[in-house]
Computed example of a mutant assay.
Amino acid sequence: MLDALDVRSGHRVLEIGTGTGWNAALLSHLVGDENVVTVEVDKALAAEARARLNAAGYTPRVVVGDGTIGYGKGSPYDRIIATASVQVIPSQWIGQAHPGAVIVAPWGPAYGGEGVVRLVIDETGRAEGRFVGSSAFMRMRQQRRRLPVTERFVDPQTWPAEADLSTTGLSPDDVGDWIVMFAIGVQVPDLFLRITYGEEGAYRMWLFDTGVTSWATADYLKSRTTFQIAQAGPRRLWDELEAAYSWWEAQDKPSFERFGLTTRGGPVCKVWLDAPDNPAPTPSVEEPSPGAHGS
């Protein structure tokens, strides 16, 4: 991430998430501690990090505060780096940086999968750039989502309840890799999942939407080549997932490095493949006829 940040002598750097202070020490070594501001939401962690940094001979500005609002008093910055993941690039980060400044942050959708994105800010306040690889950071505290409990959709004890049943040849195991989850999540941004485990490696994959309208399950058994699907509600969430997977597969199973992100900060962003004019699609899935059931 520091390599992607490409810090140079004299750069003003804002770090979001001080943690132990290790990364702030590296930044201080690279650009001088007088040029480093690091923000930590946890007061105790900030105090411990400050003590460690001072003991190592570094005195960057350690600020206790909300990382999503940055630190305006130290702006404008040439580089911003986050050591906690986000789903929304805060507009304050962009507003506190020079045109031409770089933001490096772990970014991922609600469904799962996460990569480090390197964004460059232009003169209009647009931040755009490619992902440089996968990552797995704790979500920034201010952006952690309290997802609806399963019982708001269905009582698991009554499964399959009124769901439509069908089968699929796509194994739930095939959609569990980090990059696959990322590709699905950017196409179906309100999708999230849970897993309940059975015996001998069997499990049930539950899919839900954050609007609490629909749910689906996919049952995995090691010995099977087809898998039972249950879907309920106005949407068919497994079909949406399968369409998203098929798109990723049709693009030659792209890695994180082929994806990019464009945003002006806030919840609106565009994830694209290979070039900004090729956005990842939102799959169009036909809803089943009323009362239709698979077999």
Results as ranks from 00 to 15, higher is better:
Gly67Thr: 10
Ile69Ala: 07
Ile69Trp: 08
Tyr71Met: 01
Gly72Trp: 13
Pro76His: 14
Asp78Glu: 14
Asp78Ser: 09
Asp78Val: 00
Arg79Tyr: 01
Ile80Trp: 10
Ile80Asn: 06
Ile80Val: 15
Ile81Trp: 00
Ala82Pro: 01
Ala82Gln: 08
Thr83Arg: 13
Ala84Pro: 02
Ala84Met: 04
Val86Asp: 06
Val88Thr: 14
Pro90His: 10
Pro90Asn: 11
Ser91Leu: 03
Gly95Val: 01
Gly95Asp: 14
Ala97Ser: 13
Ala97Glu: 12
His98Tyr: 15
His98Gln: 12
His98Glu: 15
Pro99Cys: 05
Pro99Ala: 10
Gly100Trp: 13
Val102Glu: 00
Val102Arg: 15
Val102Ala: 01
Trp107Lys: 13
Gly108Asp: 01
Pro109Arg: 07
Ala110Gly: 00
Ala110Cys: 05
Tyr111Gln: 01
Gly112Trp: 03
Gly112Met: 00
Gly113Gln: 00
Glu114Thr: 08
Glu114Gly: 10
Gly115Ala: 12
Val117Leu: 06
Val117Ala: 14
Val117Glu: 06
Leu119Tyr: 10
Val120Asn: 09
Asp122Gly: 09
Asp122Lys: 09
Thr124Leu: 09
Gly125Thr: 05
Arg126Asn: 05
Glu128Trp: 02
Gly129Val: 06
Arg130Asn: 11
Phe131Met: 08
Phe137Thr: 01
Met138Arg: 07
Met138Ile: 03
Arg141Phe: 08
Gln142Ile: 01
Arg145Lys: 14
Arg146Lys: 13
Leu147Asn: 12
Thr150Asn: 02
Thr150Ile: 05
Arg152Trp: 05
Asp155Thr: 00
Asp155Pro: 03
Asp155Ser: 08
Pro156Lys: 14
Gln157Met: 04
Trp159Leu: 15
Pro160Ser: 13
Ala161Ser: 10
Ala161Met: 10
Glu162Asp: 11
Leu165Asp: 06
Leu165Gln: 09
Leu165Phe: 02
Ser166Asp: 15
Ser166Asn: 05
Thr168Ile: 01
